[in-house]
Each structure stands twice: as structure tokens, then as C-alpha cells.
Nucleic acid binder design. Sequence first.
DNA 1: ATGAAAGCGCTAACAC
DNA 2: GTGTTAGCGCTTTCAT
Lengths: 304, 304
Amino acid sequence: MREKVLKAAAELGYRPNALARAMNSGKSRLIALLVAYLDNQFYPIVLEQLSRKLQRHGYHVLLFMTEPGKQDEVVEQIMQYQVEGIVMVSATLSSSLARECARTGVPVVLFNRYVSSSPASSVTSDNVEGGRQIAHFLVDGGHRRIAFIAGAEDSSTNRDREAGFNKGMAERGVPVFARAVGAYTFEGAAEATRALFRGSERPDAIFVANDHMAFSVMDVIRDELNLRIPDDVSIVAYDDVPESSWKGYKLTTVAQPGEAMIDATIEILLAQINEEVVRRRSVVLPSRLVVRASAKLPVTSAPD
Amino acid sequence: MREKVLKAAAELGYRPNALARAMNSGKSRLIALLVAYLDNQFYPIVLEQLSRKLQRHGYHVLLFMTEPGKQDEVVEQIMQYQVEGIVMVSATLSSSLARECARTGVPVVLFNRYVSSSPASSVTSDNVEGGRQIAHFLVDGGHRRIAFIAGAEDSSTNRDREAGFNKGMAERGVPVFARAVGAYTFEGAAEATRALFRGSERPDAIFVANDHMAFSVMDVIRDELNLRIPDDVSIVAYDDVPESSWKGYKLTTVAQPGEAMIDATIEILLAQINEEVVRRRSVVLPSRLVVRASAKLPVTSAPD
DNA sequence: ATGAAAGCGCTAACAC
DNA sequence: GTGTTAGCGCTTTCAT
């Protein structure tokens, strides 16, 4: 009997309907991935790994690109698909909506962002410590006119990297020379760089808030301003995307522990899916400085 | 009455269940995106635009990363979610499965690939013509030892680019100097480059099958072999990803009409969703050479 | 062992 | 207008 049915099913090309199954079992096996943009190479890689691993765990990925400012609207749609969890990559959601998710019992994990007032969990690298290390590295490299090019000022990554940087500079007793905003965009970074070099007193080093902007900064410095890196200006950034090791740039940068961050995200998500009541978790992973050739090296074996 | 219900719904935080709706209406409003890899920057951008535009049309995106060799397995899963269409980005599916999709009436569009024997539709740029233009450009630039670094040899993009290149070379009466395979990977391209320069007779120009490999090729040529680009070797590639215009590379390349390809994909998909019986469509969009500084320019105003 | 029935949340069709 | 009902395809339960 069993076999008869199985045989007939195969012949008719029967396929179980995942939607129907989801509906009555209450488990959609769907995870929503909310992504703000993919032009910074850090994110495509995260997206790829996150999807692959989630698939391996039997989950399927619903992808949404957020339109700036209407992330909440998109989350509304997501919830209608009965997703079992939400990962926000380089994006945040309003605290009202976060509460809404908490109410429904849908876990939310912010990847590479955090909002302390929100019930959403988060996974980040230690951006504060990374910024601090960079300050020490640059000061110890003999630089005294160290500028900062900020990313999006409302992002926690930028806030933390800058806070750590300022702290590290203070610890070394060197004031921050200048500051400009690149908003994590290629063009914004180019403009910020031009602004920094407009005056008569020019920076001798720049901490750029992420790699993506740093490439643009380096292009302007070498191609427009005809300065040498690192002889005239040292550049250090943050992320360690694949392009950073390209020979055309050889960027000294703080590496985000991408894989560990992804694993932590999945672990939190899966744990929370099985929890009756979701409890918030925040993971901060260590990052480390990858020294290449875009910045002068510390001269003395400085204490740290 | 209507208002009473609406009010109660709002208070209780009611949200329509998209799964239930999908089930009885038979329209899931789900499109599956099947992607092979995201490290070549061409694809993240395609993914981002495709998702955004699909969202705007009221569709939602189910993302799947294909594990090499088991694309069919993944498509099985996809079908269970009752998707209304499938877009394969840089991936193909077996013709048996393609027929299966055709039987079920689920439209499949291959993006940047095609399989002529398959019922699946496809959208590509004119890779043959692009390859041909490159051959002409390099010969007219005075090069006589022009090598080719292939991508994945089983991909239609590589086949077409190479075929066009060979044709263009033949038209100019110059034999192809050498050939190596980079398989569309960074490391493969580096190795291929080293192989090409191992002999005593070295190429004076290379057509690299895509930009992603070209960056690796340029790194090896400049950093390992200590040759100058384009003085010693000219490099031309294909795609025009954002990095190609970075000042560290200034890559001369054939631009894929990404946006037009995306629009065509969506148009085909939406049209086919509304067709009772899906009829195959294949679109080939024109591409154009973007001249930067990685290759010597044609000396004479050569006819073409 | 096999069969029958209820119900997940919605929409469409048909009543009142 | 307002209400009721059947059915999408599955799983779970209960009866045979």
C-alpha cells in the first residue's frame, strides 16, 4: 500500500507543498535577511556564508533590501511570511518594531550593529578596541597629525570605532588632528579626503572608518594630490575585505572576525527559535590589526 | 462594523498570514534567486538590484546559494515553496530539471548564462561581440603576442567571449599567442599568469575573461614579475565591475549592461508568470568597451 | 496496519 | 451590507 502510493507520487511528479506544511505546523523554516546595501564587499561575503550555513541547518532565506528610512515597512511584510527569525545586516530597526517582534516571539539579531535600548540581540566585533589599537599604531608610527574619516554617523560601528580611536589618542596624549565625514560611501570619502587636504596644514595619517572608503581615500591621495602612501600619508582602515590585500592597495586594517560573527549569529538565532521566551544576547568578538603597507610601522617597540 | 473589526485587529496586533494567502490563492508572490557565488563584485550588485526591483513589483525573494554540483537538489527544495519564478544567477540547471520546471509552469530565467538545449529563458550580454572587439582593440594597439586567460571552461560566458576573441583575432590575421585557464577564481588567475610568463617568449597583451581575475593578473604582473602595465603588457577584461575604475587598476574592460540585463530578466519573468504556457525567450544585450589605462591604445585610426 | 476527520488562516462564492 | 461555507495541502489525532 505504502509503496503503491509512493510509486504513484513519483509518477505524477508529486512534491510536498512547503507552504501548507508551514501553515499547519507553525514552522515556516524561513529566516529573513534584511540588508541595507551590498557595494561594500564585506556584506556580500557575509550574505553568502550566512545563507549557506542557514541552508545547511534546514532553513531557507528570504532576502530583503531595505530602502533607506523604510526598514520598518519591510519588516511588516516580513512578519507576514511567518519567518522564524530575522537577521539585520548593516541595518537597524526602530525600537517600537523591535518590541513588536519580541511580542510575537520572533528573534531578531543585528549583525555588525547594535542598539542597546532594543530587545534585539546583536553580534559585532570589538570596534572600540579596534579603534584604540589603530590610534596607538599610528601614534607609535611617529604620526602627529592624525585625522579621522567617519562613516555613517548614526551607525554603532562608526560611533564605537571613533570612540575607541579618540580614547587611544588620548591615552597617547596626542590630539586628533582633523575629522571629516564620508558616510561609508565611495564619493563621500573622496570628498572628505579633499576637504582634509584643503588647508595648509595637512594630515600625516588618516584612520578611515572602513575599508570601502579607504580605497577611495587612497585613490584621491595618490591620483589627485600626488602624494605617496605611506611616505607622505599613512592610511589605516577597518574590515579587511578581500580588496585590502590586493597589491594595488595593501591596506593596513583591522580584520573583522567575519566567520566567527556569522557562526555566533546563527547560534543565537537557532537558540532563540527554540526558546519559549526570547532573551536578548549580545556578542562582541575580538578583532585584530592586519599590518600591510599603507601605513608606516611603529618605530620603537612601543609598550601597549 | 467594518471599523470595529479594523480597530480590534489593530489592537490585537493582527497581521495577515502571507502563507495562508499564498496557499489558497495559488500565488505565493515568491521568486527564487539561485546564486553560485558572490565574490565577483558583478553579482552582489545584480543581486541587490534584482531584489529591489522585484520587491517593488510586489514579489519577495527566496535566496539560495548553490553548492557546486548540487544545483538540482536545491531547485527541488525551491519548487516546494511554490515559487512563481526562478532566476539563476551565474548558475545553470540540468536540462532534466529545466523540463520539470517547464512542466510545472514555473518560469526559469538564466542570468548571464544560457543553455540552448534548455527550455529555460536567458539574458546575457553579447559576449561574442565583446570578445571580438577586444581582439581588434589589442591587435590595433600594436600587440602581436596576445594571450587569453579563460574563466570556467564550461560556462557560456567563457565560451562566447573566447569564441568572439578567436574570431576577432582571425579577422585581423593574428594568431592567439597563448592560452591558460583561471576558472574565474583569483588564485586560478594568478597561477595562469605565472604559467604564461614562464617561457622565454612572453605575451605583450592578455585578454582576461573577467575583471575579477584581471585584478589578480595585474597584481602578479606588477608585483611578482615587475613588469609595467600597459608599457610591458596590456590587460583587457570583461564586466566593468566598480573596482575596474579604481585608480590602482584603471582596467580597460567591456562593460556588461547590468541594469538592462536586470530589467530584461524581470520583464521576462513577469510576462511568463502571466502566461498559461511559458514560452522561452532569450535576450542578448549589447556591451561596449570602456577604455581606461591598462592597455595601449590603437595607434592608427583602424577600421572596424 | 489503514482510514477518516479536524484544523492551520486565508479567499472566493454564495447566501441572507 | 453582513454572514456563512468550502477548500487550498498538509499534519495530527482519533477510530477502526
